[in-house]
Write a protein that binds this DNA or RNA. Structure first.
Lengths: 264, 264
DNA sequence: CAGTGGTCTAGACCACACT
DNA sequence: GTGTGGTCTAGACCACTGC
């Protein structure tokens, strides 16, 4: 019931800034501390993807702050896409399942067809095996060289035409039981599988894009001629706490599609 | 002084939702209406890029709402990068000048050099001329075929090495006095020039990325061999009101650089 | 109907910047 | 000190959802 309501600071009113007994090394607004506590509950699995979290009023009571403060904390978590508010229903933990529109992190769209996509992507897994991380892979995943990783290679096709070749590396420790069969049998986004089977939720990602020439093996898998230009997309995806949990190298055919990005 | 404080709705308390005399076709929260009024002042040039806008308290008085409501309006405008808050100093109109870190909309970064960039880009303008919009350019700029447009072609280089070839189209009507000399003499971001000389502020942009092969003329301008892969970046930039004001087609060399994108 | 998020207000005090 | 944005509270009422 009681939830260690913040170290000690109980301010009946007034701004954040823990009312300072010791010389605190860092001050942070109350709502930031609340945000941290909510985050902790998300990480610990107290509330799982898709779940409703307690109402703002309940959380306010639990953390011993006003509803407005909880609200501001939830606001930020919602703009970070960690929570989703639904008026009249509650606040939910965001999930890659039920992501009504396609894949959340896939920015490849058809050039003309203003519609979302020409049907869902067809997946074909080329290989899936456990191996040891190279220095480069280890560095990007925050592992050590030689640590076990799971490597997956697959092709995505739209309307029968191959469009994407992806190589994926996952930390072996976190994805213990993942096999080719699990992946092949699954429908729906891979990140949804990670949530339901391994309790790992991808929260944000950073991508680096380049233009490259198709190598012979790549070209044959994508059904194109060698040397044709492909969009190379290298992604590192992070869970809570900015922990890297996936490295993904994609090669996209962009003759009839494009990678869309919004700047502001 | 008085600023037509919203159609009529004067609610001494209680939520937005204009207190409904007529069957209003659309309800919107008070803070959204305030946001619209602030936006109007930004568009009209009442507050120019770099200016301080009135304090939250002053605006609250002017619009006859509470400070908290103005605050929420400003909050959204700040997250949209239209305004910038500076504690103790005031709220400022965002500007592409004084954008402390490089160009705001340029996502091309060096692969290794963890530093921002290897010095500022060197600009070389290849051509700058007025012409009539093709159907395609007109469509993307919201003009009619044959309307006057200004076309600029330039090369950006880093440390002496050409890296970007850009073709830019601007609506002729809005950029009346713009000449090659103006562009060539100017230092600093082009969008800063647009603000100071034409009162046009680019607010957001949408980019479409593809991988393409370098055509012979492109290759020679970029100092590479024909056929090498280049990252094609087609950008439409918008002012206030989602009015398109620039079409830009860039070709980026990505052997040692990459286009960085953050997903969430 | 009750419960949830959404909006609005009013007032208090803090942190920061400038004078 | 004065003025600015930043945080926090308490209470009111609205809008949506589902029983």
């Amino acid at each position: 019931m009681s939830d260690t309501p913040l170290p000690e600071s109980r301010n009946p009113n007034g701004p954040a800034h823990t009312s300072g007994s010791e010389s605190a090394p860092a001050f942070s607004p109350l709502y930031q501390q609340i945000k941290g506590l909510i985050l902790r509950s998300l990480q610990s699995g107290e509330w799982k993807p898709g779940d409703v979290i307690p109402s703002e009023f309940d959380l306010a009571a639990r953390f011993r702050v006003s509803q407005g403060t909880v609200r501001k904390a939830i606001d930020e978590l919602a703009t970070d896409n960690l929570l989703v508010r639904r008026q009249g229903k509650g606040t939910f933990v965001a999930t890659h399942a039920e992501q009504h529109i396609q894949y959340r992190f896939l920015r490849l769209l058809p050039d003309s067809g203003n519609l979302d996509a020409q049907g869902p992507a067809e997946r074909r897994i080329i290989e899936c095996r456990r191996q040891r991380a190279t220095a480069d892979v280890a560095r990007q995943l925050g592992l050590r060289s030689g640590d076990p990783v799971l490597q997956v290679r697959r092709v995505l096709a739209f309307a029968g035409t191959p469009a994407i070749l992806e190589d994926i590396w996952l930390p072996g420790a976190a994805f213990k039981g993942l096999t080719l069969e699990t992946l092949a049998d699954d429908k729906g986004p891979m990140y949804a599988l990670f949530e339901s089977q391994f309790g790992i939720r991808m929260v944000r990602a950073v991508e680096k894009l380049k233009a490259v020439s198709a190598a012979p093996d790549v070209a044959s898998l994508l059904g194109i001629q060698g040397g044709l230009p492909l969009l190379s997309v290298e992604r590192v995806a992070y869970t809570y706490n900015d922990t890297p949990m996936e490295l993904r190298r994609g090669l996209y055919r962009t003759e009839n599609r494009h990678y869309r990005n919004e700047l502001s």
